[in-house]
């Protein structure tokens, strides 16, 4: 498993436990109202699990298991995984974006619901996520292909 995949999968596992813990607090609050402003964390809960957990884990695993780029005469399995800088960019973008929407939710909570001053944060998160997804597709697009035996250059579907 390449290092950026390890990093993305570990980050996704962290967002899984943080997202579920926030979700558990929200559900407890629904059962026995603890603290009303807690509800401001609902959108952070959704994005932690949707982007931080599901999208990031899928991307990290895809970078790991998609067919590698092979050259004629190179032993199968030793080909490379393309430009891993794109994967690091994706990893950074996804996590910075989730961090921004989480920070936004916390600031809205702490300011008592005054969201207007922090409206730039979710917008920036959206832009950073878009960049991350473009970087991810830039890495995996050319790897979506039949597995090729580099010694014979025959494809096995």
């Amino acid at each position: 498993m390449p290092r950026p995949s390890q990093f993305m999968i570990r980050a996704s596992l962290i967002w899984l436990v943080v997202g579920y813990t926030v979700g558990g607090l929200l559900l407890l609050h629904k059962a026995w109202p603890l603290f009303y402003p807690l509800w401001a964390l609902r959108s952070a809960h959704i994005f932690m699990l949707l982007v931080g957990w599901l999208v990031q884990l899928s991307a990290g695993v895809a970078v790991w298991i998609m067919p590698r780029l092979v050259q004629p005469g190179v032993i199968t399995g030793s080909g490379d995984r393309g430009d891993l800088r794109l994967v690091w960019l994706c990893c950074g973008g996804l996590n910075v974006g989730v961090g921004l929407v989480t920070a936004h939710s916390l600031l809205v909570w702490l300011s008592g619901g005054h969201a207007s001053a922090f409206g730039w944060m979710p917008a920036l998160a959206g832009a950073v996520w878009l960049m991350a997804i473009i970087a991810f597709i830039g890495n995996v697009w050319q790897r979506v292909r039949p597995v090729i035996d580099p010694l014979k250059m025959i494809s096995h579907d």
Partner: peptide
């Protein structure tokens, strides 16, 4: 709901 929350976390 409270037990559910604790178990899922």
């Amino acid at each position: 709901l409270a037990i559910s929350a604790v178990l899922q976390v």
